[in-house]
Design a protein around this nucleic acid. Structure first.
Lengths: 145, 145
DNA sequence: CTGCTATTGATAATCATTTTCATGGAATGG
DNA sequence: CCATTCCATGAAAATGATTATCAATAGCAG
């Protein structure tokens, strides 16, 4: 999704919820889209502070939650104890490969796995809303080292 | 794995690590095995307090970590903010179905999914050490209600 | 512009987890 | 059997991430 569309989607969400479009929220969204994915609240906070020291951690945190609420970002937990957010590609789901040595995160998608997940869930009488699949291991460069 | 074997495995681990077999560690292991799986530290702590009020939270916490270290338990995170532990079936891996309504947790295993995971990882040059697969949805009883 | 209300940001509170540290206990070597 | 050493324990405090509080500020509608 192009950045401009993400921005209008966010503004629209604010409108429909009776929330206000503020300078901070614009700045935070701007930086969130500029920076790579899988940022923690702190990552983003620090990046923002460099450009504008007058921005609070709480605001970054609240705004990221807003992003998640309106569907332009998703929260993730990779086991290092802090939440990370990534821009969501609108219905495009993907899973993650995480290198336990260097921390590199690679996204992937496999419809066959998704298909099997649905089957397994059905066998147990479940209907799936969402899932989480993370593969932890070593990437090729770390194995060579 | 039978409980008695788990206990000896734990005692053996303590020995090889130069650690001591204590009354508390025995009690905690006993209760951990008695109680169902997927217990949080606090769950176990509260259960233990009922029988023996002279046991500290920190000890339960430390002992659960010991269980994980020696391979008789595994730590899990299901997104409710607290770690849970389950007895590990010695190499037998399984994944989880979690009902988002009632919180019920069902274990499952599917070699076809595991196989595909390995393939996908290989395509990206990764060699997998472990993985996490959780399916969140509604169980049949919650959907009927 | 005015007033109402949401937002902000510094700070404090919370929650789970982890560390600290003085005390107690287990095992080992005299 | 005793002493010594070192580990374990548990109460309390520290930590780290997240969330709530609240007075001051800033959007937005009229």
């Amino acid at each position: 999704m192009p950045k401009t569309r993400t921005k209008s989607k966010f503004r629209e969400y604010l409108l429909t919820q009776g929330l206000k479009s503020t300078q901070q929220r614009e700045l935070i969204l701007e930086e969130f889209l500029r920076a790579g994915s899988h940022l923690s609240t702190e990552d983003l906070y620090l990046r923002l502070r460099k450009k504008n020291p007058r921005i609070g951690y709480a605001t970054v945190h609240r705004t990221l939650k807003l992003f998640a609420e309106c569907g332009i970002a998703e929260q993730r937990h990779f086991g290092d104890g802090q939440a990370r957010y990534e821009a969501s590609d609108q219905g495009e789901h993907h899973d993650h490969l995480i290198c336990v040595t260097c921390g590199r995160i690679v996204e992937f998608e496999d419809p066959r796995i998704e298909q099997l997940q649905d089957e397994v869930a059905a066998e147990h009488g479940f209907s799936i809303e969402r899932h989480r699949l993370e593969l932890y291991g070593s990437c090729s460069s770390c194995r060579q080292a």
